[in-house]
């Protein structure tokens, strides 16, 4: 076989079995190797592409590791201040009720500094989708304790392990949001195994279908790893996620 195969030779009519979604740019992902963000980005963009609504979508990037999501998601995007993405999304969606508006936020952004914006967007039943990446840590700023950090879990601001008596318990914000009538769908997914990726993608599809049908707010939590912040290899961090994160944050639909 020749070493100089051109893409045209590989991709002949009828031989194409997989193509990267056009709604992802060709920019190199800024995420650490092994991080779940890349998969979460891709399945979100794949859903928009499969629904044929990429050119009607407006995404909101948070502050955190995914602050540069707009470099990778090849659609119209706004970058929001820390925690304010649901308010920004509200401002857009109220004026463009037929466009597809979503936020993509981490646990520090959504469940700590942005709790107020999250609760009230959910309570108003804003017809948006929230993709919520929960990796139990502040990754971007260097591995500080998040509201979702597990009891006893070490971080740079809980170097001896999170003291639940002093700092409270890992917050299950998706369960909290599920109690609000404005939320039509609340689910917790993961992306560290192929089967789970497929399930997570289905959940994201359902969330955007809900938006299309004007059912209210859908929140899709994705429990993810942070191998750099957790100071583990990618493989080890996924094992640790299974053993430690999932018992506290069990996967599955919470509402809807």
């Amino acid at each position: 076989m020749s070493n100089n195969i051109t893409p045209e030779e590989i991709i002949k009519n009828g031989t194409l079995v997989f193509e990267k979604t056009k709604l992802m740019t060709d920019a190199h992902l800024s995420y650490c190797p092994g991080c779940g963000h890349g998969v979460a980005h891709r399945i979100t963009m794949e859903v928009l592409e499969e629904m044929g609504v990429g050119d009607q979508a407006i995404g909101i990037a948070p502050v955190g590791c995914s602050v540069l999501a707009y470099d990778f998601m090849n659609i119209d995007m706004q970058q929001a201040a820390h925690g304010r993405a649901p308010a920004v999304a509200t401002g857009i969606k109220r004026l463009y009720p037929d466009k597809f508006v979503f936020t993509y936020q981490g646990d520090g952004d959504l469940a700590a500094i942005g709790t107020n914006e999250t609760i009230h967007a959910c309570n108003r039943g804003e017809n948006i989708v929230i993709i919520f990446i929960n990796n139990g840590i502040y990754g971007m700023t260097g591995g500080q304790m998040a509201p979702t950090t597990l009891g006893g879990m070490k971080s740079s601001t809980s170097p001896y392990g999170r003291d639940l008596g002093m700092t409270g318990h890992p917050i299950k914000i998706t369960e909290m949001m599920a109690t609000l009538p404005g939320v039509c769908y609340a689910t917790r997914q993961a992306v560290h195994k192929p089967g789970l990726v497929r399930k997570a993608k289905k959940a994201i599809r359902k969330a955007f279908e809900n938006q299309k049908d004007k059912k209210g707010l859908s929140i899709v939590e994705i429990v993810s790893n942070c191998n750099s912040g957790w100071k583990m290899s990618p493989v080890k961090s996924n094992e640790w996620l299974e053993e430690n994160m999932l018992p506290v944050f069990p996967l599955g639909d919470i509402k809807g």
Partner: peptide, 14 residues
């Protein structure tokens, strides 16, 4: 007020 100004941000950005 924080929510309000960021709603303005979203709408203005649109």
């Amino acid at each position: 007020e924080i929510g309000a100004i960021h709603m303005v941000y979203g709408a203005a950005g649109a």
